[in-house]
Nucleic acid binder design. Structure first.
Length: 275
DNA sequence: TTCTTAACCTGGAGGC
DNA sequence: TGCCTCCAGGTTAAGA
């Protein structure tokens, strides 16, 4: 499931190939995944546009196009954006295919069809719910220890739920939330507003460390994630707790436990991460 | 306003 | 082998 590191790796891959490409045709194979405008208008309006740049905000990919338009893509659970130089669609779960004038293509594939695409004027980006409410990003000056201290103090939810809320911190998902909390030695069910200053400092450092490590490893691939060239990431080889329930904690040897928190599978060490 | 829960969706695993 | 049930999780609407 693509989180900030995976989306950033995809962005970097796409940025190598897409700028300057003219979209000759957009084939919408799964209309329900087009958020706006209508699927017909989406295909019609994007034709002929030239991709100028590829950016990212949280887990959103933003493809800035000519004529002041922007294509917003959220991959959700199983979405992927793969550039194919020969234009041949090999993904059996292709949902939208963008064919370029030079014969290459960009394929949006998505097994579970949770992903969403929207085409809108750049000036309307603020109207896209979710995108304009995003909190600060890890690894930026805006995401500071002071910000985290003030933010957690206002919320009584479990700290894991807090981390998954994109309005608090943008880009963290289930994998990196579990890994950051393990690294910081904080129990996922701990109430956010009870964190001490020192714990906020540890959590802030841990979030930045796991996100940076995920990017350095090319992302985490468990099932569906692929980078922009269809390749896999390697960060799953360095995870301490995620998908490791029953295995020995790398720090103390206690078996990693799994619990349900906010409807999400949550892994933690019962000894290293105290409530 | 804040928080919780369920729904969306489909492939794969496990049980029978 | 085939059928059924459950699970995975990012986001958001609905309800408390």
């Amino acid at each position: 499931m693509p989180e900030l590191p995976e989306v950033e790796i995809i962005r970097r891959g796409l940025a190598k190939h897409l700028p300057g490409k003219r979209i000759a045709e957009a084939e919408v194979l799964r209309p329900s995944q087009i958020l706006r405008p209508t699927p017909e208008a989406f295909a019609r309006e994007i034709e002929g546009k030239v991709i100028e740049s590829v950016r990212r905000r949280g887990k959103y990919l933003l493809l800035f196009l000519s004529e002041a338009l922007v294509l917003v893509v959220h991959l959700r659970m199983t979405g992927r954006l793969v550039y194919v130089a020969d234009g041949e669609v090999r993904d059996p779960y292709a949902r939208v295919v963008f064919s370029f004038a030079d014969g290459s293509a960009l394929v949006f594939g998505d097994v579970r069809t949770f992903g969403r695409l929207a085409l809108l004027p750049v000036g309307d980006l603020d109207t896209l719910r979710g995108l304009h409410e995003l909190g600060p990003e890890p690894l930026t000056p805006e995401f500071s220890v002071m910000y985290l201290q003030k933010a957690v103090a206002r919320h009584r939810v479990p700290i894991k739920t807090f981390l998954l809320d994109q309005r608090r911190v943008a880009g963290i998902g289930n994998i990196y939330a579990d890994e950051a909390l393990f690294r910081a030695g904080i129990h996922p069910a701990r109430r956010a507003d009870t964190l001490m200053a020192a714990e906020c400092g540890r959590l802030h450092a841990a979030v930045n460390e796991v996100i940076a490590a995920g990017i350095a490893d090319g992302g985490t691939t468990f099932r569906d994630y692929q980078n922009a060239e269809g390749g896999k990431g390697h960060h799953q080889e360095h995870l301490a707790v995620y998908e490791r329930e029953g295995e020995a904690c790398p720090r103390c040897g206690t078996p990693i436990m799994k619990m349900k928190l906010g409807g999400r599978g949550t892994r933690y060490c019962p000894k290293c991460q105290k409530l």
